[in-house]
């Protein structure tokens, strides 16, 4: 079934796949041209998840998005998990694979969150070695996603865009630019999101993410945005997307909505808005 080379992700709108939308995606995809799945939800031996995925992959380009490799972890990558990932990738032959500039596993505990990293030479060397290992194992390029940050490390010596540029230069990986994450981090850490984008190696961007965030405050009453993926994409994030697209040109652009997942028409409307932002460039 998967003898053909994969279709690349279209330069169009996609959504994070939720099983409750299965039937409607097949009957009324609207502007949605591709789907992203979380790798870790499809690592069982069989059953409905894999059957649905096989069926969807006949109609849509699929992006596999890992949330569990812990690429930024101090420990070596989990060989069992990497083998499970390779098994899924070989079976599905998806259009793309991406992971995060973050860590999530320590001392054999998987913490189920994307945890932050100091941007130092030591972190850089470790992450590049891990990405080399992933790309060699999978036999393909991966994309690395910029995180949403709630704090910074005093020891960091690299800016995030420079750090990501250097990772891409050393490993040949591509980058996934999460525009909401840029906005969240910029608000939380007090930098200008447009300057971040202007410093970002936009030539390496293979995919764009958009998602909703919640608003909170820190100890000093400063705004603290939470990357919740539980609501519509905020207006300033749409404005920042236009700024990004002006530099990257059209890219596969994904709506992520992972908590309080809405009915299909709501998600479809968000995808239509992303599609419209891409059409402006066409």
């Amino acid at each position: 079934m998967f003898d053909n080379p994969p279709r690349p992700l279209p330069f169009a709108a996609g959504v994070g796949y939720k099983p409750q939308h299965y039937a409607q995606i097949l009957s009324d995809a609207g502007p949605v041209r591709w789907l992203e799945i979380h790798a870790e939800n499809y690592m069982g031996a069989g059953g409905r998840p894999l059957a649905q995925l096989r069926h969807l992959s006949e109609r849509f380009a699929i992006s596999v998005h890992g949330v569990g490799l812990s690429i930024g972890g101090e420990a070596p990558l989990d060989a069992n998990h990497l083998a499970r990932l390779k098994h899924l990738m070989d079976w599905l032959n998806p259009a793309s694979f991406s992971e995060h500039l973050a860590w999530s596993t320590h001392d054999s505990h998987f913490l189920n969150d994307l945890l932050p990293l100091p941007y130092t030479d030591a972190t850089l060397a470790r992450i590049c070695a891990h990405i080399d290992q992933v790309q060699t194992t999978l036999g393909r390029q991966m994309l690395l996603e910029n995180p949403s940050s709630y704090l910074a490390f005093a020891e960091s010596t690299w800016s995030e865009p420079d750090f990501l540029r250097e990772v891409a230069r050393r490993t040949g990986c591509g980058l996934l630019l999460d525009v909401n994450n840029v906005f969240v981090s910029a608000t939380n850490l007090g930098f200008d999101p447009r300057s971040y984008v202007d410093a970002f190696p936009t030539e390496c961007v293979g995919e764009i993410h958009l998602g909703g965030h919640d608003e909170d405050h820190d100890d000093h009453g400063a705004p603290l945005l939470i990357d919740s993926h539980g609501r519509e994409v905020a207006d300033p994030v749409w404005a920042l997307l236009a700024h990004v697209l002006a530099q990257t040109g059209p890219k596969p652009t994904l709506i992520e909505w992972d908590t309080d997942v809405p009915e299909w028409p709501v998600l479809q409307a968000e995808a239509a808005r992303a599609d419209a932002a891409l059409q402006v460039l066409a």
Binding site: N112, D113, S149, N188, G190, D218
Partner: peptide, 26 residues
């Protein structure tokens, strides 16, 4: 130690976002 708000002040309750994410998601 060594965690800040990006402006040189201690991270304080910002760390609680990660604590909360771990506990809530699990």
């Amino acid at each position: 130690s060594g965690l800040t708000d990006g402006q040189g002040r201690p991270a304080g309750r910002r760390f609680a976002v990660y604590r909360n994410n771990v506990a809530v998601s699990l």
